[in-house]
Simulated assay, not measured.
Amino acid sequence: MEHVSNSATLVATRKRSLVPEKWEDQVRAIGISEYKEAALSLAQAFATDELAQYLLDAEDVTEGDETKWRLHVDIFNYIVASHCYKGIVTTIGPDYEAVALWMPPGKDSDDWLTILRSGMWRLYYQLSAEGRRRYYSELLPVLHQTKHEVMGDRDDDCYYLVYLGTKPSGQRRGYGRKLIDHMAAKADAEGRAMYLESSSVKNNGYYKKFGFEVKRDRQ
Rank of each mutant, 00 (worst) to 15 (best):
S200N: 14
K208W: 07
L71D: 02
I92G: 00
D74A: 10
G64K: 11
K68V: 07
I79P: 00
L18R: 14
R216Y: 13
D65F: 10
I115A: 11
L56T: 06
D111V: 08
R173E: 06
P94L: 09
S198L: 09
W112P: 03
G106H: 09
L71Q: 05
T114W: 03
D95F: 11
L140S: 10
K36M: 10
F212Q: 01
S109H: 11
M120N: 04
V99S: 01
F212E: 01
V89F: 00
V73C: 14
T48S: 15
Q26E: 11
Q145E: 07
W102D: 01
L10A: 11
A39W: 01
K209G: 05
Q53S: 12
L164K: 03
S17Q: 13
V89G: 01
L51G: 04
Y136I: 12
A29N: 08
V19F: 12
A39R: 02
Y85F: 11
C84R: 00
D153F: 06
T166M: 02
L56R: 01
S118T: 01
E63D: 14
Q219I: 03
Y195H: 14
I30F: 06
I180C: 07
V4W: 07
E37C: 12
P141Y: 12
N77R: 11
P168E: 09
A189N: 10
E59N: 12
I30S: 09
F210W: 09
L196W: 04
T48N: 15
E37D: 12
R132P: 05
R14M: 10
R122K: 13
K68A: 10
A45S: 07
A52P: 07
D57Y: 14
L139P: 05
I92M: 01
V4Q: 08
D217K: 15
L116S: 05
R70D: 05
T90C: 10
R172Q: 12
D65K: 15
L40P: 00
A58G: 08
R117I: 08
L164M: 08
G119A: 06
H148I: 12
Y35K: 00
F76L: 12
D25F: 12
G176W: 00
I92W: 02
G131R: 00
T62E: 13
K68G: 09
S118N: 02
R172S: 14
G31C: 09
A98G: 08
P105Q: 10
A98Q: 02
T166P: 01
D60Q: 10
M151S: 10
Y207W: 06
K107W: 05
T90G: 03
T166K: 04
V11M: 13
R117L: 15
N203A: 07
D188Y: 07
D181I: 07
R216C: 12
I115C: 09
L40R: 04
S41E: 04
A81R: 00
S5V: 12
S198H: 04
S82C: 10
A81L: 02
C84F: 08
L196V: 08
S128K: 06
S41K: 04
K202D: 11
A193K: 03
T62D: 13
A29P: 04
P141N: 13
Q171E: 11
A193H: 00
F210I: 13
T166Q: 05
P105S: 12
K186A: 01
S17W: 08
R218E: 13
T166G: 07
Y96M: 02
E59Y: 14
